[in-house]
């Protein structure tokens, strides 16, 4: 799936020039690194990778106990005038991406912002769509979709579960 996204990016951006990948913690970060590695293999191009923590921009901050902050890392060269591709594991309601767009606005002014996700499971609550999708998985709202990434979870997997089900 990562290969597919890498190819899509190269195709749409004519070689990924002036492009920066920003992973959204937690699992967007290793995904962004893998994508960059694939693009480097296919095209020989080194794409800068950064990290964008969106905790302070979440619209549900007040609904839960205080969350610990993640680390934000802007790659050298910054974001101004470049193409920023946000990378996350699952696209669901779209709220994370909205928060990421808000966070991005405080860091600089990219030329364009795009979105790459491993899985699009539908059920959008905001007018947001992905530019690059590893796989569209139509799901029921009752189901949960969990992506495991080797760097973080020890194994690569996408698991769909009924939320009511005992685990």
């Amino acid at each position: 799936m990562v290969d597919r996204i890498a190819h899509q990016i190269l195709e749409k951006t004519s070689g990924a020039a002036e492009t920066v990948l920003l992973g959204i913690p937690t699992r967007g970060v290793p995904l962004a690194r893998r994508l960059a590695a694939r693009i480097a293999t296919f095209e020989g191009a080194e794409i800068p990778v950064g990290v964008l923590d969106i905790t302070l921009y979440r619209d549900d901050l007040r609904l839960q106990a205080t969350r610990a902050l993640g680390h934000t890392e802007v790659p050298p060269g910054g974001l101004d005038g470049r193409r920023v591709i946000l990378v996350d594991d699952v696209l669901f309601s779209g709220r994370t991406v909205r928060a990421a767009l808000d966070a991005l606005k405080d860091l600089g002014r990219p030329r364009t912002v795009q979105l790459a996700v491993l899985v699009d499971r539908g059920h959008r609550e905001l007018p947001i769509r992905a530019d690059y999708v590893g796989k569209n998985i139509p799901t029921s709202i009752e189901e949960s979709v969990r992506v495991s990434i080797a760097e973080h979870d020890g194994t690569d997997a996408v698991v769909i579960k009924n939320r009511g089900a005992q685990t």
Partner: peptide, 17 residues
């Protein structure tokens, strides 16, 4: 958390929502 907040000092917009 303070260390993350400190990184703000170098940013364009020194404000968080």
């Amino acid at each position: 958390t303070a260390a993350e907040m400190a990184s703000l000092a170098g940013r364009e917009v020194k404000k968080l929502p």
